[in-house]
Design a binder for these strands. Sequence first.
DNA 1: CATGAATGAGTCTTCATTCAT
DNA 2: AATGAATGAAGACTCATTCAT
Lengths: 209, 209, 209, 209
Amino acid sequence: MDFTDKQIQIIETAEQLFAERGFDGTSVRDIADEAGINVAMISYYFGSKEKLLEALFELRVGSVKIRVESLIKDDSLTPIEKVNMLVDEHIERVMQKPCFHKIMIGAQVTNKNPFILKAANNVKIRNAEVVSELIKDGQKKGIFKKKIDVVMMLNTMVGTVTQTIMSKDYYREFNNQQHIADAEFMAILKRRLSIHIKILFKAILTNEA
Amino acid sequence: MDFTDKQIQIIETAEQLFAERGFDGTSVRDIADEAGINVAMISYYFGSKEKLLEALFELRVGSVKIRVESLIKDDSLTPIEKVNMLVDEHIERVMQKPCFHKIMIGAQVTNKNPFILKAANNVKIRNAEVVSELIKDGQKKGIFKKKIDVVMMLNTMVGTVTQTIMSKDYYREFNNQQHIADAEFMAILKRRLSIHIKILFKAILTNEA
Amino acid sequence: MDFTDKQIQIIETAEQLFAERGFDGTSVRDIADEAGINVAMISYYFGSKEKLLEALFELRVGSVKIRVESLIKDDSLTPIEKVNMLVDEHIERVMQKPCFHKIMIGAQVTNKNPFILKAANNVKIRNAEVVSELIKDGQKKGIFKKKIDVVMMLNTMVGTVTQTIMSKDYYREFNNQQHIADAEFMAILKRRLSIHIKILFKAILTNEA
Amino acid sequence: MDFTDKQIQIIETAEQLFAERGFDGTSVRDIADEAGINVAMISYYFGSKEKLLEALFELRVGSVKIRVESLIKDDSLTPIEKVNMLVDEHIERVMQKPCFHKIMIGAQVTNKNPFILKAANNVKIRNAEVVSELIKDGQKKGIFKKKIDVVMMLNTMVGTVTQTIMSKDYYREFNNQQHIADAEFMAILKRRLSIHIKILFKAILTNEA
DNA sequence: CATGAATGAGTCTTCATTCAT
DNA sequence: AATGAATGAAGACTCATTCAT
């Protein structure tokens, strides 16, 4: 599905507002006002508010698959390196589109839209399959443990990142880092998250300390 | 704040619907119909829909503190045992009130209500403080590592549990456990979560494998 | 119709609120809260909000008649003295119960309630009859002009007083009398009104300058 | 502020209903039904019921100023002629828009809306200023008395007209003029009012009988 | 292609009143 | 005699959507 520039502009405006106020908390008029367009345009371009949300998911989820696929096929990397890259890839993706990420959580909590649910599930399934293969490879090579709960492992990655992003202001306050610039703080957070999750994954996957 | 039986009934009905459809996605008429009461009763008892949500938080959050406080003072337990108990306590709490947990996430995502935000933050702060003390004790006794990121650690616990509960249907499907009865599956999930997080915490806190 | 102390208390509370906010702008709950009684009491005591308004009119209008009647029969007074007394009597009555006066105007503007309309009309008719007799007496004695429009004359009295009371704050400001105490200002206003209207009446009734 | 034809139609429908039933006694649905439009249009065009009332005032008060201003500058008229013209102008204005006049009284009684209060006060102030100048001119020319209470004088004009209009049905009944056609009766009333007030003003302003 | 106007269903809340006690 | 609880109707307003242009 291709979107025109104007459509993308509307989608991105909606993305921000949906993230801030929730889907039901955002009116099409809010979106139209913010985007500087006529209210009727939303129905005109997307059919309905619901369809606009789906368009947002199409736009954002479409590109994910490719990056993950290519990763696994690289033979020059060890299984653990691949896992680590996957971690960074996830952190990067979430932090690059925090609004979309918020909406995704919200959509999962209130699982009203079957389209969204499927889209979210597809991402999860794809990730789990890739990681499963990756792990099998590591087990074959004797690097990884025998029994590994892949989904639980991914839940830890996704959950930790989500929780950290969601409560980042609190994290900042607790660590007295309000004086640091926003961008820098986010960079620090990213690094810490990365290290933290890699440690966890090492503990889950391998037998070493 | 004390609530009458009728008020609690309304609150719990609202809790379920808010969890299913989100706050904005639930109308007071929905709640009234489901609870078998007149629409006006919601304003009559709580003042407004917003205040009803706040009442829900008062009802659910009020009792948390006490349990956590008593835990830490028990001298017969080792630091690691205490941490483990905290993990189980958290899992238990979330799984006992999955609806409220959902709402709490939703409320944090769309942080419109300052009352709710404060309530959620209070819980986090309290938890972080308790765990901080606990860790210091373990460090003094030479059991725990020197440098530990408490908030990140808690984010892993909370995030993993949240993510697991939220995507539990997917987890079930992936592990081909649809044939197992709901209650039993939840018990299995609880056990796995408990073991999983305890392993992670051990890796975060201690130097052993 | 006799009212108990409690009923009178409710009526007087209602009187004040009706004057401040209008009949439709005042809820029975407002009245109940202000009077420190239960909401149900108003229906209980008066039957309805409408009936409460009628009760107010019964309470306030009932006593007017007697005073006016006795005035006219006093033979020691000249017709012009009697007219002047009537003027003062009217000013006094309005200024003593400004709230009720406000309500009366409001009720006439929005003539929804036939009971009120009748009550207001009765007062007017009674006044006009009394004044008519009075004027006839003056005409017989050769003091008053032949052709006098009684109703128009009363309209001037009632209208001038009403308008002056209603815009008294503006009057005060225009004459730079904000520094004067409320009570004193009202006394001044009363005196001026009295003199003013008496001059007008003299011009209407007699041929002298 | 300019209004479209449709807006004016809505405003005038509202004007009539507000006059009949009062502001609080009129629902937006009443207005919409009467005007043959959708309820939502009122919010759409004016924002709220309150704003609709304000729009009514803007529409009606806007044009008043100009007429009064030009009057005073005409040098071919004597001060007393000018005053008389002002009287007729006022009577004319009130009788042309009796509904608006009713609302204005109602709005002053229940002075909830600050916008309305200001609008009403502005008219009063303007009138008083114009009349003040006019009187000073008459005094300079030795035609008018020295001490004249301008506001009280205007209160008599405004009050008498208001009172007469408000109780016109009663006036008609008292003078047994029910058989006269409405339009003709209004014409008679207008003439009588005009003469009546001019007599009063002459008594107030000059020393002659 | 794009829009201002219009719609009817829906929102939450408040209303005066009645009921059971 | 008096009240807290409860009710259904009505309140103003906002919603996503459609229509005519």
